[in-house]
Simulated scan of single mutants.
Amino acid sequence: MTDNLQTPQTAFDHETAATHMVRGIPIATMKTPVDSVIASLRGRRFDCADTIFVTDDDGRLEGIVRVNDLFLETDCLIGQIMEEEHEAVRPDDDQEAIAVLAMELNMIAVPVVDDEGRLIGAVPPESLLKILRAEHMEDLQRLAGITPHERGSDVGFDAPLGNRIRRRLPWLLFGLLASSLITIVMAGFEHSLAANVSVAFFVPAIVYIAGAIGTQAVSVAVRGLLDEDIPIFKLLRGELVVGTGIGAVLGIIAAILVLASFGDPRLAAAVGLAVLGGGIVSAVVGFGLPWAFTRFGSDPALGSGPICTIIQDVSSLLIYFFFVTILL
Protein backbone atom coordinates (compact mmCIF):
# COMPACT_ATOMS: atom_id res chain seq x y z
CA MET A 1 0.00 0.00 0.00
CA THR A 2 1.25 3.50 -0.84
CA ASP A 3 0.31 6.92 0.42
CA ASN A 4 2.18 9.35 -1.80
CA LEU A 5 1.98 9.70 -5.55
CA GLN A 6 4.74 11.48 -7.39
CA THR A 7 3.59 12.92 -10.71
CA PRO A 8 5.08 15.71 -12.79
CA GLN A 9 3.67 19.14 -12.09
CA THR A 10 1.65 20.65 -14.92
CA ALA A 11 0.35 24.16 -15.28
CA PHE A 12 -3.47 24.04 -15.02
CA ASP A 13 -6.09 26.71 -14.67
CA HIS A 14 -6.75 27.67 -11.05
CA GLU A 15 -10.33 26.36 -11.28
CA THR A 16 -9.49 22.76 -12.23
CA ALA A 17 -9.10 19.49 -10.35
CA ALA A 18 -5.32 19.76 -10.46
CA THR A 19 -5.40 22.86 -8.27
CA HIS A 20 -7.35 21.15 -5.49
CA MET A 21 -5.88 17.68 -5.84
CA VAL A 22 -3.76 16.11 -3.06
CA ARG A 23 -1.41 13.18 -3.58
CA GLY A 24 -0.98 11.85 -0.07
CA ILE A 25 -3.86 9.38 -0.12
CA PRO A 26 -4.24 5.74 1.04
CA ILE A 27 -4.03 3.34 -1.90
CA ALA A 28 -4.28 -0.44 -2.00
CA THR A 29 -4.28 -3.03 -4.74
CA MET A 30 -7.30 -5.27 -5.17
CA LYS A 31 -5.56 -8.34 -3.70
CA THR A 32 -4.47 -6.61 -0.49
CA PRO A 33 -6.09 -8.13 2.67
CA VAL A 34 -8.30 -5.71 4.55
CA ASP A 35 -6.34 -6.39 7.77
CA SER A 36 -3.14 -5.30 6.00
CA VAL A 37 -4.81 -2.11 4.77
CA ILE A 38 -5.97 -1.22 8.29
CA ALA A 39 -2.54 -1.95 9.70
CA SER A 40 -0.89 0.26 7.08
CA LEU A 41 -3.01 3.24 8.09
CA ARG A 42 -1.66 3.36 11.62
CA GLY A 43 1.06 5.89 12.38
CA ARG A 44 0.90 7.57 8.97
CA ARG A 45 -0.27 11.02 7.96
CA PHE A 46 -2.37 11.44 4.83
CA ASP A 47 -3.61 14.53 3.02
CA CYS A 48 -6.97 12.78 2.68
CA ALA A 49 -7.79 9.56 4.54
CA ASP A 50 -11.57 9.44 4.22
CA THR A 51 -11.45 6.94 1.35
CA ILE A 52 -9.24 4.01 0.40
CA PHE A 53 -8.58 4.03 -3.34
CA VAL A 54 -8.26 0.58 -4.87
CA THR A 55 -6.15 0.09 -8.01
CA ASP A 56 -4.88 -2.76 -10.13
CA ASP A 57 -1.20 -3.66 -10.29
CA ASP A 58 -0.60 -0.95 -12.90
CA GLY A 59 -2.12 1.82 -10.77
CA ARG A 60 -5.41 2.09 -12.64
CA LEU A 61 -8.34 2.98 -10.43
CA GLU A 62 -10.70 0.05 -9.90
CA GLY A 63 -12.88 1.20 -7.02
CA ILE A 64 -13.08 2.87 -3.64
CA VAL A 65 -13.71 1.82 -0.05
CA ARG A 66 -15.02 4.34 2.43
CA VAL A 67 -13.31 4.28 5.81
CA ASN A 68 -16.70 3.67 7.45
CA ASP A 69 -16.97 0.40 5.50
CA LEU A 70 -13.37 -0.66 5.97
CA PHE A 71 -13.93 -2.19 9.41
CA LEU A 72 -17.14 -4.09 8.60
CA GLU A 73 -15.35 -7.11 7.13
CA THR A 74 -11.70 -7.63 7.90
CA ASP A 75 -11.27 -11.27 6.89
CA CYS A 76 -11.22 -10.73 3.12
CA LEU A 77 -9.47 -8.89 0.31
CA ILE A 78 -10.18 -5.19 -0.13
CA GLY A 79 -11.17 -5.82 -3.72
CA GLN A 80 -14.12 -7.84 -2.44
CA ILE A 81 -15.64 -4.96 -0.49
CA MET A 82 -14.83 -2.05 -2.80
CA GLU A 83 -17.43 -0.02 -4.66
CA GLU A 84 -16.86 -0.86 -8.29
CA GLU A 85 -19.33 1.70 -9.59
CA HIS A 86 -17.40 4.91 -9.27
CA GLU A 87 -16.53 8.03 -11.20
CA ALA A 88 -13.24 9.89 -11.54
CA VAL A 89 -12.16 13.22 -13.00
CA ARG A 90 -9.18 14.40 -15.05
CA PRO A 91 -6.71 17.02 -13.80
CA ASP A 92 -8.04 19.69 -16.15
CA ASP A 93 -11.74 19.13 -15.37
CA ASP A 94 -13.57 22.22 -14.17
CA GLN A 95 -13.95 22.53 -10.41
CA GLU A 96 -17.70 23.16 -10.53
CA ALA A 97 -18.28 19.91 -12.42
CA ILE A 98 -16.24 18.09 -9.76
CA ALA A 99 -18.37 19.46 -6.93
CA VAL A 100 -21.60 18.61 -8.77
CA LEU A 101 -20.33 15.07 -9.37
CA ALA A 102 -19.50 14.66 -5.68
CA MET A 103 -23.00 15.78 -4.67
CA GLU A 104 -24.75 13.59 -7.23
CA LEU A 105 -22.86 10.43 -6.22
CA ASN A 106 -22.48 11.25 -2.52
CA MET A 107 -18.69 11.06 -2.80
CA ILE A 108 -16.49 11.96 0.16
CA ALA A 109 -13.41 12.50 -1.98
CA VAL A 110 -13.20 12.59 -5.77
CA PRO A 111 -10.42 10.53 -7.39
CA VAL A 112 -8.30 12.13 -10.09
CA VAL A 113 -6.89 9.94 -12.87
CA ASP A 114 -4.75 10.53 -15.95
CA ASP A 115 -5.80 9.81 -19.52
CA GLU A 116 -4.99 6.12 -19.07
CA GLY A 117 -7.05 5.77 -15.91
CA ARG A 118 -4.11 5.68 -13.51
CA LEU A 119 -4.78 7.24 -10.14
CA ILE A 120 -2.76 10.40 -9.54
CA GLY A 121 -4.56 11.95 -6.56
CA ALA A 122 -7.88 13.00 -5.12
CA VAL A 123 -9.88 16.14 -4.38
CA PRO A 124 -10.49 16.04 -0.58
CA PRO A 125 -13.78 16.96 1.11
CA GLU A 126 -12.49 20.27 2.46
CA SER A 127 -11.60 21.34 -1.08
CA LEU A 128 -15.06 20.34 -2.28
CA LEU A 129 -16.59 22.67 0.30
CA LYS A 130 -14.29 25.49 -0.80
CA ILE A 131 -15.24 24.89 -4.43
CA LEU A 132 -18.95 25.01 -3.63
CA ARG A 133 -18.55 28.25 -1.71
CA ALA A 134 -16.40 29.84 -4.45
CA GLU A 135 -18.85 28.83 -7.19
CA HIS A 136 -21.78 30.09 -5.15
CA MET A 137 -20.11 33.46 -4.63
CA GLU A 138 -19.17 33.63 -8.31
CA ASP A 139 -22.74 32.94 -9.38
CA LEU A 140 -24.04 35.61 -7.01
CA GLN A 141 -21.63 38.13 -8.53
CA ARG A 142 -22.60 37.22 -12.07
CA LEU A 143 -26.30 37.40 -11.27
CA ALA A 144 -25.64 40.90 -9.93
CA GLY A 145 -23.79 41.84 -13.11
CA ILE A 146 -20.32 41.84 -11.51
CA THR A 147 -17.51 40.20 -13.48
CA PRO A 148 -15.77 37.71 -11.14
CA HIS A 149 -12.15 38.38 -10.26
CA GLU A 150 -9.73 36.26 -12.27
CA ARG A 151 -8.15 34.98 -9.05
CA GLY A 152 -11.38 34.05 -7.31
CA SER A 153 -14.38 35.65 -5.65
CA ASP A 154 -12.68 36.09 -2.26
CA VAL A 155 -9.85 38.06 -3.84
CA GLY A 156 -12.39 40.25 -5.60
CA PHE A 157 -13.70 41.70 -2.33
CA ASP A 158 -10.27 43.08 -1.46
CA ALA A 159 -9.30 44.10 -5.00
CA PRO A 160 -8.16 47.68 -5.69
CA LEU A 161 -10.89 50.25 -6.17
CA GLY A 162 -10.22 50.61 -9.89
CA ASN A 163 -10.45 46.86 -10.41
CA ARG A 164 -13.78 46.66 -8.57
CA ILE A 165 -15.20 49.50 -10.66
CA ARG A 166 -14.08 47.85 -13.91
CA ARG A 167 -15.72 44.58 -12.94
CA ARG A 168 -19.05 46.21 -12.07
CA LEU A 169 -19.32 48.87 -14.73
CA PRO A 170 -19.81 46.92 -18.03
CA TRP A 171 -23.24 45.45 -17.25
CA LEU A 172 -24.37 48.71 -15.65
CA LEU A 173 -23.42 50.58 -18.83
CA PHE A 174 -25.37 48.00 -20.79
CA GLY A 175 -28.35 48.53 -18.49
CA LEU A 176 -28.11 52.31 -18.87
CA LEU A 177 -28.16 52.09 -22.65
CA ALA A 178 -30.84 49.38 -22.75
CA SER A 179 -33.07 51.30 -20.37
CA SER A 180 -33.65 53.76 -23.19
CA LEU A 181 -36.10 51.12 -24.46
CA ILE A 182 -38.26 51.82 -21.41
CA THR A 183 -38.27 55.52 -22.27
CA ILE A 184 -39.29 54.70 -25.83
CA VAL A 185 -42.12 52.49 -24.59
CA MET A 186 -43.38 55.17 -22.22
CA ALA A 187 -43.17 57.82 -24.94
CA GLY A 188 -45.09 55.59 -27.33
CA PHE A 189 -48.07 55.54 -24.98
CA GLU A 190 -47.99 59.25 -24.19
CA HIS A 191 -51.61 59.70 -25.20
CA SER A 192 -52.78 56.94 -22.85
CA LEU A 193 -50.90 58.54 -19.98
CA ALA A 194 -52.27 61.98 -20.83
CA ALA A 195 -55.84 60.69 -21.05
CA ASN A 196 -55.70 58.98 -17.66
CA VAL A 197 -52.87 60.01 -15.37
CA SER A 198 -53.78 57.19 -12.98
CA VAL A 199 -52.27 54.76 -15.48
CA ALA A 200 -48.78 55.97 -14.56
CA PHE A 201 -49.28 55.25 -10.86
CA PHE A 202 -48.95 51.49 -11.34
CA VAL A 203 -45.91 51.37 -13.62
CA PRO A 204 -43.36 50.93 -10.79
CA ALA A 205 -45.37 48.15 -9.12
CA ILE A 206 -45.89 46.21 -12.36
CA VAL A 207 -42.21 46.49 -13.29
CA TYR A 208 -41.16 45.41 -9.78
CA ILE A 209 -43.44 42.36 -9.68
CA ALA A 210 -42.27 41.18 -13.11
CA GLY A 211 -38.63 41.66 -12.13
CA ALA A 212 -39.05 39.82 -8.84
CA ILE A 213 -40.71 36.81 -10.50
CA GLY A 214 -38.00 36.74 -13.15
CA THR A 215 -35.22 36.93 -10.58
CA GLN A 216 -36.65 33.91 -8.77
CA ALA A 217 -36.86 32.01 -12.07
CA VAL A 218 -33.24 32.87 -12.87
CA SER A 219 -32.09 31.60 -9.47
CA VAL A 220 -33.89 28.30 -9.96
CA ALA A 221 -32.69 27.90 -13.55
CA VAL A 222 -29.02 28.69 -12.89
CA ARG A 223 -28.65 25.83 -10.43
CA GLY A 224 -31.18 23.49 -12.03
CA LEU A 225 -29.47 23.61 -15.42
CA LEU A 226 -26.30 22.21 -13.86
CA ASP A 227 -28.14 19.01 -13.01
CA GLU A 228 -28.18 16.94 -16.19
CA ASP A 229 -30.69 14.52 -14.65
CA ILE A 230 -33.49 17.11 -14.73
CA PRO A 231 -35.11 17.44 -18.20
CA ILE A 232 -35.04 20.98 -19.56
CA PHE A 233 -38.71 20.97 -20.53
CA LYS A 234 -39.66 19.79 -17.06
CA LEU A 235 -37.91 22.80 -15.56
CA LEU A 236 -39.51 25.14 -18.08
CA ARG A 237 -42.98 23.70 -17.52
CA GLY A 238 -42.56 24.00 -13.77
CA GLU A 239 -41.44 27.63 -13.91
CA LEU A 240 -44.23 28.46 -16.36
CA VAL A 241 -46.84 26.99 -14.01
CA VAL A 242 -45.30 28.77 -11.02
CA GLY A 243 -45.12 32.08 -12.88
CA THR A 244 -48.72 31.77 -14.01
CA GLY A 245 -49.91 30.86 -10.52
CA ILE A 246 -48.03 33.69 -8.82
CA GLY A 247 -49.09 36.16 -11.52
CA ALA A 248 -52.75 35.13 -11.15
CA VAL A 249 -52.73 35.50 -7.37
CA LEU A 250 -50.93 38.85 -7.43
CA GLY A 251 -53.03 40.04 -10.37
CA ILE A 252 -56.30 39.35 -8.53
CA ILE A 253 -55.03 41.10 -5.40
CA ALA A 254 -53.80 44.09 -7.43
CA ALA A 255 -57.10 44.38 -9.31
CA ILE A 256 -59.08 44.33 -6.06
CA LEU A 257 -56.86 47.01 -4.53
CA VAL A 258 -57.07 49.25 -7.61
CA LEU A 259 -60.84 48.84 -7.79
CA ALA A 260 -61.20 49.67 -4.09
CA SER A 261 -58.93 52.71 -4.34
CA PHE A 262 -59.93 54.23 -7.69
CA GLY A 263 -63.35 52.72 -8.37
CA ASP A 264 -62.41 52.09 -12.00
CA PRO A 265 -63.09 48.46 -13.01
CA ARG A 266 -61.38 48.83 -16.40
CA LEU A 267 -58.19 50.21 -14.88
CA ALA A 268 -58.32 47.45 -12.26
CA ALA A 269 -58.66 44.84 -15.01
CA ALA A 270 -55.75 46.34 -16.94
CA VAL A 271 -53.49 46.26 -13.89
CA GLY A 272 -54.53 42.72 -12.91
CA LEU A 273 -54.05 41.32 -16.41
CA ALA A 274 -50.70 43.12 -16.73
CA VAL A 275 -49.45 41.54 -13.52
CA LEU A 276 -50.59 38.11 -14.75
CA GLY A 277 -49.01 38.55 -18.19
CA GLY A 278 -45.82 40.02 -16.77
CA GLY A 279 -45.49 37.10 -14.38
CA ILE A 280 -45.80 34.55 -17.17
CA VAL A 281 -43.34 36.32 -19.47
CA SER A 282 -40.86 36.94 -16.66
CA ALA A 283 -40.88 33.28 -15.64
CA VAL A 284 -40.19 32.18 -19.21
CA VAL A 285 -37.48 34.80 -19.74
CA GLY A 286 -35.95 34.09 -16.35
CA PHE A 287 -35.56 30.45 -17.32
CA GLY A 288 -34.90 30.94 -21.03
CA LEU A 289 -31.89 33.24 -20.76
CA PRO A 290 -29.81 30.98 -18.47
CA TRP A 291 -30.76 28.07 -20.73
CA ALA A 292 -29.57 30.06 -23.77
CA PHE A 293 -26.27 30.88 -22.07
CA THR A 294 -25.83 27.19 -21.25
CA ARG A 295 -26.59 26.17 -24.84
CA PHE A 296 -23.87 28.51 -26.12
CA GLY A 297 -21.33 27.12 -23.65
CA SER A 298 -21.36 29.98 -21.13
CA ASP A 299 -22.08 30.04 -17.42
CA PRO A 300 -25.89 30.36 -17.07
CA ALA A 301 -25.41 33.02 -14.40
CA LEU A 302 -23.33 35.21 -16.72
CA GLY A 303 -25.24 38.44 -17.15
CA SER A 304 -28.62 36.74 -16.79
CA GLY A 305 -29.65 39.11 -14.01
CA PRO A 306 -29.01 42.43 -15.81
CA ILE A 307 -30.26 41.17 -19.18
CA CYS A 308 -33.38 39.66 -17.62
CA THR A 309 -34.12 42.91 -15.85
CA ILE A 310 -34.22 44.91 -19.06
CA ILE A 311 -36.29 42.34 -20.97
CA GLN A 312 -38.75 41.93 -18.11
CA ASP A 313 -39.14 45.68 -17.60
CA VAL A 314 -39.83 46.34 -21.27
CA SER A 315 -42.14 43.34 -21.76
CA SER A 316 -44.17 44.06 -18.61
CA LEU A 317 -44.68 47.68 -19.70
CA LEU A 318 -45.73 46.60 -23.19
CA ILE A 319 -48.23 44.16 -21.72
CA TYR A 320 -49.57 46.80 -19.33
CA PHE A 321 -50.03 49.47 -21.97
CA PHE A 322 -51.57 46.92 -24.34
CA PHE A 323 -54.35 46.24 -21.84
CA VAL A 324 -54.63 49.94 -21.02
CA THR A 325 -55.11 50.70 -24.72
CA ILE A 326 -57.83 48.11 -25.32
CA LEU A 327 -59.67 48.51 -22.01
CA LEU A 328 -59.56 52.27 -21.30
Results as ranks from 00 to 15, higher is better:
88 A>F: 11
318 L>Q: 01
328 L>R: 03
62 E>V: 00
151 R>E: 14
124 P>L: 06
96 E>M: 02
196 N>L: 07
274 A>R: 02
303 G>F: 03
294 T>K: 15
253 I>F: 08
161 L>Y: 15
71 F>P: 01
157 F>G: 08
23 R>Y: 02
141 Q>M: 15
249 V>M: 13
269 A>V: 05
308 C>W: 00
246 I>A: 09
66 R>G: 07
54 V>E: 05
121 G>P: 14
81 I>T: 13
312 Q>E: 09
25 I>D: 02
303 G>V: 03
320 Y>N: 04
100 V>Y: 07
13 D>S: 14
141 Q>T: 15
243 G>M: 01
66 R>C: 02
215 T>S: 15
5 L>H: 00
144 A>N: 12
322 F>A: 06
121 G>N: 14
212 A>H: 09
75 D>S: 10
156 G>A: 15
79 G>L: 07
289 L>G: 01
8 P>E: 13
317 L>R: 02
323 F>Y: 13
229 D>V: 05
258 V>N: 11
30 M>N: 11
28 A>T: 00
71 F>L: 10
132 L>D: 14
327 L>A: 11
103 M>G: 14
64 I>R: 08
73 E>Q: 05
44 R>I: 05
88 A>Q: 04
28 A>E: 00
265 P>V: 15
26 P>N: 07
237 R>A: 08
252 I>L: 14
151 R>A: 11
173 L>D: 09
302 L>T: 00
79 G>C: 09
286 G>C: 12
135 E>R: 05
249 V>F: 14
101 L>V: 04
146 I>H: 09
249 V>Q: 11
62 E>F: 00
56 D>V: 06
21 M>L: 01
107 M>V: 04
36 S>L: 07
225 L>Q: 10
48 C>N: 14
164 R>I: 06
29 T>L: 08
16 T>Y: 03
229 D>Q: 06
197 V>N: 06
108 I>A: 08
125 P>Q: 04
213 I>D: 08
34 V>W: 01
193 L>V: 15
267 L>N: 00
252 I>F: 13
117 G>A: 03
84 E>N: 13
251 G>P: 03
38 I>M: 15
137 M>I: 11
55 T>R: 01
35 D>S: 12
117 G>P: 02
75 D>A: 05
18 A>L: 09
268 A>F: 06
230 I>W: 07
